[in-house]
Amino acid sequence: MRRGLRARGSLQRWPRNLKLGVGLMIAWILVAVFGPMLLPGNPTTMDLMNSLHPPSLAFPFGTDNLGRGVFTRVVYGSRIDLQIALFCVVPAFVIGTMVGMSAGYFGGTTDVVSMRLVDVAVAFPFFVAVIAIVAVLGPGLKNMYIAVACVGWVSYARITRAEILVVKQTDYVQAARLLGFSDRRILARHILPNVIVQALVYATSDAVLDIFLGSSLGWLGLGAQPPLPEWGLIIADGYSFVSQAPWISGFPGLAIVLLAVSLSLLGDGLADALRPELGRA
């Protein structure tokens, strides 16, 4: 009480890593949305006269073996890779938290059935399972999204369930029951806000993983298909020219790292900002 009212929403109170993470993610989204409009070139137009051009004023990141500007391709690629992060994480997040929530809150048969499903899903290593599913469904981004949704929800379900089991026992949930609140109200208002944070923080690191996955599958020829300027594909294209033209693989690699760092900062920042101060006043 001695302390002043803590303004939860005010920007100044945000942890520094959250500010940085949010700033970087906004920058990435601006690049993805407006970058392609501002660039004169086309990511797929070949110009064999200018192939393997080192970075210069005309080609800031140099050109690849087909004379395409690596900068243009990386900027266009940000659209694809951000889309990969989003489409891989959101379905897994939604399915996983819903399964975890009902398993944790209602227990009993719901819990047993969903947790056995989880056991089955984790029996296969994540990458192996995704590659296997994509191999069956056929290469392409859409099938990759389906594969990740099939496997990725498991972690969210586990995290949410574990958190719910803890929160369900707290005195404030018992108090809510005594006050005559309905199950739906208790779940939505008293439990969910306290359990979703963990899943949300995990989602940011999961997004990093999914971008690496997208790039790896692209590299293997199972994800995005050429001539799409997906970063993994660009790296794969430059692979044969690494010694002569390291910029072809280097710059998209740098972009992946930078996006991963942005997402981790966002995740860490969220974890710091959303953690309720349970510390004794």
């Binding site: 707290t170 005195d171 404030y172 018992q174 108090a175 809510a176 208002r189 008293h190 806000p193 306290n194 309720p276 101060e277 349970l278 004794r280």
Partner: peptide, 12 residues
Amino acid sequence: FQDPYSSLNPRI
């Protein structure tokens, strides 16, 4: 309740 720290929802 006994524990004044867990009997109130920290987010409300």
